[in-house]
């Protein structure tokens, strides 16, 4: 018994010495940590203080000017992983991942308004190619994209007599004459503890990077221009957001700043 005890002590001491020597060599190798000789100098560097380092704050590693050192790949799940670690995701992979069908007071034809003018919709008419942000006007300057007020609908439709007698427009003018807003229902409803900002995404991708607005809106909303009533196309879960935020969206090849979105809990959670 004593022998085993002694042996274990010897083993522990050996391990201890090994780790200690490893720590020595590693610290000497990376050249940042002090050896015994320049410990005082390092202490002086440490004592130099933090709030005085305004000038160095942007050039040290990880600052805004830094390029991403490693490319972070999005998680790739195979079906086994999905089955055991993410069963709901595995089940969802067999579905179309569309959200619930929301019954709106007026069946608003997104394809008729925002669809491609050259493309014929299922109802036999072509789209008008109106920009998403003509109606959802707050998307570029606010947290929410915004539902247009009724007067915005009327502003155009009072000048379009050709469709004035169709059932949906008649219903629209009923609301207008009654002086009541249309009770649209929310399709893309995020939880209350999430702060999603439309402005940053639109400013970044549409105005700064000049990507087509339909593509940018479609990252989260899908191809709304081919739908009538909008339906949720993406899961809009946290994994969906983070997968995109981990990717590097540099503005162009000469852009030196790291291009990924914030990966900080407090940026989105409130």
């Amino acid at each position: 018994m004593h022998r085993i005890f002694l042996n274990s002590i010897v083993l522990l001491v050996g391990l201890f010495a090994a780790t200690a020597s490893f720590a020595d060599s590693s610290t000497a190798h990376d050249g940042v940590a002090p050896s015994a000789g320049n410990a005082a100098a390092a202490a002086a560097v440490e004592k130099k203080g933090f709030i005085a380092d305004y000038d160095n704050i942007f050039i040290v590693k990880g600052g805004p000017e830094a390029k991403p050192t490693t490319e972070i790949k999005p998680l790739e799940w195979n079906w086994v992983d999905k089955l055991f670690y993410n069963p709901m995701g595995w089940i969802n992979s067999f579905t179309d991942q569309l959200g619930p069908e929301v019954e709106q007071p007026i069946e608003f034809p997104h394809d008729r308004h925002a669809g491609d003018p050259g493309k014929v919709n299922p109802d036999g008419k072509t789209g008008d190619g109106i920009n998403c942000m003509y109606c959802h006007t707050f998307a570029r300057r606010s947290l929410t994209a915004g539902i247009p007020p009724l007067r915005k609908c009327i502003g155009c439709h009072q000048n379009i007599p050709s469709v004035r007698d169709t059932p949906r427009i008649v219903k629209l003018f009923e609301y207008w004459d009654a002086g009541k807003p249309i009770p649209w229902k929310k399709v893309h409803d995020l939880p209350d503890y999430v702060r999603f900002n439309h402005e940053r995404h639109i400013q970044r991708f549409v105005f700064k990077q000049e990507r087509p607005y339909k593509e940018v809106c479609g990252y989260c909303h899908g191809d709304v221009a081919s739908m009538t009533v909008a339906r949720r196309q993406r899961t809009l879960s946290m994994g969906f957001c983070v997968n995109c935020h981990k990717k590097n969206h540099s503005l162009d090849s000469t852009y030196t700043k790291a291009g990924h979105g914030p990966n900080d809990c407090f940026m989105c959670h409130k």
Binding site: T27, A42, I57
Partner: peptide
């Protein structure tokens, strides 16, 4: 070496601001 480890422990703490190694963006 152990003193070294203890002295540099702050380098391994994400939250510690010593020397500007963990800048605040």
């Amino acid at each position: 070496s152990i003193a070294n480890l203890l002295q540099n422990w702050s380098r391994y703490r994400d939250t510690h601001p010593y020397g500007g190694a963990k800048p605040h963006m």
